[in-house]
Nucleic acid binder design. Structure first.
Length: 501
RNA sequence: GCCUCUAUAGUCAAGCGGUCAAGACGUCGCCCUCUCACGGCGAAGACCAGGGUUCGAUUCCCUGUAGAGGUGCCA
């Protein structure tokens, strides 16, 4: 049988990284088996509808390279692929369940239920609907329906016995029916709840593997009861762990709460856009590479067989398996994300790097004044993500203020005094130099160092400081001087020397 | 509170009864070196606790603890 998987987000906001990873695994499993990957939009909650969110989903899947075979904007034989457009499909199935005694009409008002819920909570009990409407006579139900009274349809869960299902990752999961509530299947507005729609849609769309977030693990037994009631074969369930984030506990003023040891109290929570965690789009806009994000996210919660950890999407399509999925939530590690990205950046061709770096360099420099090609050679191994670039090169445009003790460096045997004399020598020498190529600068300065009989660091360290104003720079003194050009270099050298004497 | 799931270094994780308990990020040290990176070499660092089962448990079972999820006419 053809494998059919689906990614079924609700259009409530952005593509966060946990969602991206679920989509990724779902996509990979379909590809691995030569099956179909389907996009379905779950928009049955009209109140939470966010305009433009659906388009964001399309766009994100598109840039991620997760091409779906069926979906709202690409069509397919099992449409529509938007739940609100499938509205009329659900009621007949619900009525079928009513006929077979697996569901029933309920006329209880929200107010009555809220009260009961509050009361149960006060007593420290779990609220369960009391099945009041289950015991209504057929005639009464019909009469109230005819009178146009608002109603919902509830699942009739047995009072006793067990309900369970089999999950590829978690094995057999089973609960007592007594702990399960009679969930609403069809809401008063006529739309199905997720609890109902997922079963109907997955079945009618012939989904073979239901891969979805872990948050459905505890309600899956109820869904299986529904499959049984219909006499349908349940899909293969694969419940995926969420992506977590470590954060510090804050009080109502946003101040960190300190523990007994005086350290902020940490806790683990799901990645959240609202709490400032990056979304997929955020990472891309900061200059992370799609391939790096995909690679890292895949490995966060899944492990391949061997030692290799760099994979392209098409390699993953062959390699991916369900066995390597982990059971416990994993914490998103920005440092490792950065490392992966830096690694991908280093593997870029110089041309590609230049192309990607250019807009970021343009924010502070201009290509007419600076040799971008040379600059990029220096920058490539130092870039974790492109958004770092403006800060890294700003000193080339404007000479920063810096304290004179920058010149003092024990390891380089550089002191204020040695710097003054070295810089004087350098100034004298450089003023005579006309061939401002990097190699010539190197040759003449090294020659001078040799003739003075000093250590390289005693000349090169202060020289680099004097023309860059920074202790750390991408590249050394020769590279910086070359990039700045002759007149700017000499101007900076003079100014720095003046401040020193 | 109740229900479900999870538990190997700071993080991601391999392991699936017998291992000196892989590997990667991060950290630290050394080398390279005019700085920072890159690169090379090396180091420190883990089986949540207590009971079982077994000749032998990180691995299987139970209990506890901790964390996560659920407990919605949200998904």
């Amino acid at each position: 049988m053809e494998v059919r998987t689906r990614f079924a987000p609700s259009p409530t906001g952005y593509m966060h990284l946990g969602n991206l990873r679920s989509a990724l695994y779902t996509y990979l499993w379909a590809r691995k088996n030569g099956g179909k990957f389907i996009l379905r939009i779950e928009d049955t909650d009209q109140e939470r509808e966010v305009p433009g969110a659906v388009e964001k989903i399309y766009a994100s899947l598109n840039v991620a390279g997760l091409k779906y075979d069926e979906g709202p904007d690409v069509g397919g034989d099992y449409g529509p692929y938007v739940q609100s457009q499938r509205k009329d499909m659900y009621l007949p199935y619900a009525k079928q369940l009513i006929e077979s005694g697996h569901a029933y009409y309920c006329f209880c008002t929200k107010e009555r239920l809220d009260e009961a819920r509050a009361e149960a909570e006060k007593k420290g009990e779990t609220f369960k609907y009391d099945k009041k409407c289950l015991h209504l006579s057929k005639e009464e139900v019909q009469a109230r329906l005819d009178a146009g009274e608002p109603y919902v349809i509830r699942q009739n869960i047995p009072l006793e016995g067990k309900a369970g299902f089999d999950d590829v990752i978690y094995g057999h999961v089973e609960v007592d029916c007594a702990t399960l509530d009679d969930n609403v299947l069809i809401k008063a507005d006529g739309l199905p709840t997720y609890n109902f729609a997922n079963v109907i849609d997955d079945h009618t769309m012939c989904i073979t593997h239901v891969m979805r977030g872990n948050e459905y693990l505890s309600s899956a037994p109820k869904y299986n009861l529904l499959y049984e009631a219909f006499g349908w074969k349940p899909p293969v369930y694969v419940h995926l762990t969420p992506v977590m984030c470590r954060d510090v506990q804050k009080d109502e003023n946003g101040q960190p709460i300190l523990g007994e040891d005086g350290q902020p109290v940490e806790y683990v929570r799901k990645l959240s856009k609202r709490k400032g965690d990056p979304t997929f789009e955020d990472l891309l806009s900061r200059g992370y590479l799609v391939e790096a994000v995909i690679n890292y996210m895949t490995l966060l919660g899944w492990s391949p067989k061997g030692e290799e950890e760099f994979f392209s999407l098409s390699e993953l399509e062959k390699l991916f398996d369900l066995e390597g999925l982990s059971k416990s939530p994993s914490i998103f590690d920005m440092q490792k994300m950065n490392w992966f990205n830096a690694e991908y950046i280093r593997r870029l061709s110089p041309e590609k790097y230049l192309e990607m770096a250019r807009p970021w360099l343009d924010q502070v420099l201009s290509e007419e004044k600076f040799d971008y090609r040379r600059l990029c050679e220096l920058l490539q191994s130092r870039t974790e993500y492109f958004a770092q670039l403006p800060d890294m090169v700003r000193f080339l445009k404007d000479m920063p203020d810096f304290p004179n003790d920058f010149y003092v460096n024990k390891k380089q045997k550089s002191t204020l005094e040695s710097s003054v004399s070295a810089l004087k020598e350098a100034k004298e020498l450089l003023e005579t130099v006309t061939d401002w190529s990097e190699s010539n600068l190197h040759d003449v300065v090294m020659e001078k160092i040799a003739s003075l009989g000093i250590k390289n660091g005693q000349m090169l360290w202060p020289l680099r400081i004097a023309v860059s104003g920074q202790q750390n720079t991408p590249g050394g003194a020769f590279e910086i001087m070359y990039l700045l050009g002759r007149s700017e270099t000499l101007a900076r050298l003079n100014a720095s020397l003046e401040r020193l004497v």
